Amino acid sequence: MSGTQPTVTLSGGGADDARTVVRALEGTFGAPDERPGDGNATVHTATFAGETDGSAADGGGEGAGRLSAPVTVTVQGSPEAVRRASETLARVFTARDDGAASGDQEQERELHLMP
């Protein structure tokens, strides 16, 4: 299951936008450990514990909602988890891929999501 545990860091927009992005990923990865709160945070983080039973994996994010402002999302995890998260977000939102960095066992990718 460690290969399916991406961590997403979201900046830009507000807490509602962060929750919208997290909801978009729930169909692929299941519920995160914690959803973004209402506070005045400028950066939100969510770690997903696993994946769904597969029934929503290809349709993840449908009906997630719209963004009110641009959001920068950094996805960290195994290359497979980062790929799946990136594909889900690109399917649901207008996304610009701002590049990736690979480590020994993990990858990091930054996406810029537009409303």
Results as ranks from 00 to 15, higher is better:
residue 91 R to H: 11
residue 16 D to A: 09
residue 90 A to H: 12
residue 27 G to C: 02
residue 8 V to L: 04
residue 100 A to N: 01
residue 26 E to F: 00
residue 28 T to L: 07
residue 58 D to E: 14
residue 79 P to E: 10
residue 77 G to E: 04
residue 99 G to K: 08
residue 66 R to D: 08
residue 67 L to D: 08
residue 11 S to G: 10
residue 15 A to V: 09
residue 59 G to T: 14
residue 110 E to G: 00
residue 2 S to K: 13
residue 28 T to A: 12
residue 64 A to P: 14
residue 92 V to R: 15
residue 17 D to P: 09
residue 78 S to L: 00
residue 30 G to E: 05
residue 112 H to Y: 09
residue 46 A to R: 11
residue 71 V to W: 14
residue 78 S to H: 12
residue 40 N to M: 04
residue 34 E to I: 05
residue 89 L to P: 06
residue 50 G to F: 08
residue 96 R to S: 07
residue 115 P to R: 05
residue 27 G to H: 10
residue 60 G to Q: 11
residue 28 T to M: 01
residue 62 E to M: 04
residue 93 F to C: 01
residue 40 N to D: 15
residue 37 G to H: 10
residue 86 S to E: 05
residue 60 G to N: 05
residue 42 T to R: 14
residue 61 G to E: 02
residue 105 Q to W: 15
residue 113 L to S: 02
residue 96 R to D: 10
residue 54 G to Y: 13
residue 100 A to G: 02
residue 11 S to T: 15
residue 111 L to D: 06
residue 12 G to D: 04
residue 111 L to I: 03
residue 87 E to S: 11
residue 103 G to P: 13
residue 45 T to F: 03
residue 83 R to Y: 09
residue 12 G to A: 01
residue 43 V to H: 10
residue 27 G to D: 13
residue 12 G to M: 05
residue 88 T to Y: 05
residue 43 V to P: 06
residue 72 T to F: 00
residue 44 H to G: 07
residue 74 T to P: 00
residue 7 T to H: 10
residue 32 P to S: 00
residue 6 P to N: 05
residue 79 P to H: 11
residue 59 G to A: 06
residue 81 A to M: 06
residue 76 Q to S: 08
residue 45 T to Q: 13
residue 26 E to R: 13
residue 107 Q to R: 11
residue 34 E to V: 01
residue 75 V to R: 06
residue 98 D to P: 00
residue 33 D to W: 14
residue 56 A to S: 12
residue 55 S to R: 15
residue 63 G to S: 05
residue 109 R to Q: 06
residue 92 V to Y: 09
residue 23 R to E: 01
residue 1 M to I: 12
residue 60 G to R: 10
residue 35 R to F: 07
residue 47 T to L: 00
residue 20 T to G: 05
residue 3 G to V: 07
residue 103 G to I: 11
residue 45 T to E: 15
residue 20 T to Y: 13
residue 106 E to A: 04
residue 99 G to V: 04
residue 36 P to V: 04
residue 102 S to K: 10
residue 9 T to I: 06
residue 69 A to V: 02
residue 38 D to P: 06
residue 88 T to A: 02
residue 25 L to F: 10
residue 92 V to Q: 15
